[in-house]
Write a protein that binds this DNA or RNA. Structure first.
Lengths: 112, 112
DNA sequence: GCAAATTGTTTCGGTTCCGTTTCAGTTTCT
DNA sequence: AGAAACTGAAACGGAACCGAAACAATTTGC
């Protein structure tokens, strides 16, 4: 794949995200969501903040909004009750899966 | 390419965007920028609004912020002075080009 | 046992973005 | 020439987000 094709693909996926009427996640929210679903658990606020190089409140707030959208869920760590463990949800898994399928679909439509 | 690989690639690019300290563009701003640089000109506010399925003020404001970042520039259409033509800039072209190279670089780092 | 450190959340003031509406400038049509 | 249509920008109130700092709950270290 060449850079020009990659850019075209990126544009198409971005456009499909913007065009549909679902509330689009911010760049940070998307990065957090994908990290939760692609990196091995467990995921904590602190861990995600370090991985993304952002402050902890950023993670907390992103989890608030994505939690309201049922894309992730939070649970206290019973072994160390300071920790909050972030878990995947069925809805979130579906969202991410569809996103991946969307990329592939756009890739197939790409001009040579 | 499989969906899981596409997702992993998307995550890596997203992470690199979030991690660096440059102010990240919103999803809409990115879609607008890429459309300006990948679709053939001329580009107008009205045309971009239709292409992205958003209202005109969204485009106007995105052009304000991206104009301040020197990623795009605006010029009155001399033939129809109601129109504003959006033009590419050297800085914007560089930004988009680097983004494309970044995708390719991340793609090469991808696990099988 | 108790101070210090760690974790996630909340609060604060400020910024940015949003949709809707309104507006000024330009063109078109009769 | 004058009304109507069109284009982009500005004004407005509301919502979301930001970083920094303060906070409560829990664990660690001495």
């Amino acid at each position: 794949m060449r850079p020009s094709q990659a850019l075209r693909l990126w544009q198409q996926v971005m456009l499909s995200q913007v065009r549909d009427d679902a509330p689009d996640l911010t760049m940070r929210q998307t990065a957090i969501l994908f990290t939760i679903y692609l990196d091995p658990p467990p995921h904590t606020v602190r861990g995600l903040a370090a991985r993304l190089n952002v402050t902890k409140p950023v993670i907390t707030r992103a989890l608030d909004t994505m939690g309201a959208l049922k894309l992730v869920s939070r649970h206290r760590d019973e072994l160390d009750k300071r920790n909050v463990l972030i878990r995947r949800t069925v809805e979130g898994a579906l969202f991410v899966e569809r996103f991946g399928d969307g990329i592939i679909a756009k890739a197939h439509e790409l001009p040579i």
